[in-house]
Amino acid sequence: MSYFIIIISAIFVNNVVLAQFLGICPFLGVSKKISTGIGMTGAVTFVMVIATIFTYFIQKLVLVPFGITYLQTISFILVIASLVQLVEIVLKKVSPPLYQALGVFLPLITTNCAILGVAIMTVSKNYNLVEAVVFSAATAIGFGVALVSFAGIREQLDLVDLPKGMQGAPIALVIAGILALAFMGFAGLV
């Protein structure tokens, strides 16, 4: 039951983009088309789950036993940056079709603050390994739900005649705000 609550909470109630403001850059950057949105979601899910597992072990086996938790930020970002490179190399070798689909998005992920944010949140919420994996996967799905629905709206938006000042980023932000308003309807669900 508690896993179910973690999932619902991470996807809808505390949506990573619309309620916690993590991963806004890719949310605004790659949301022009639904297909790229789906690709980005795949890459984020992949890296987020792996990164959370790695940082979980680093926290439990290295940082805490040696009493150097103040190095958390530095070690996590290094692990994530090198992990993204590693995932890219391994994917290229092991599964070329998957690399074809996700490849272009991987370098962008290092600067996606949702990855580091989820890694730190997992530690501060004291999740065990299974909970951490469920939480990170659900967060990534929440990111995907927000990104794909936003991309769908933006595809329609191209056809709309807007005042000059509102074109581009401003209207995208206002739309994101309305989407966030809709997601607020989930508040109190858990």
Partner: peptide
């Protein structure tokens, strides 16, 4: 709240 951040920044 969260939606206000997006809307205020957009405008």
């Amino acid at each position: 709240l969260a939606p206000g951040a997006f809307i205020a920044l957009g405008y």
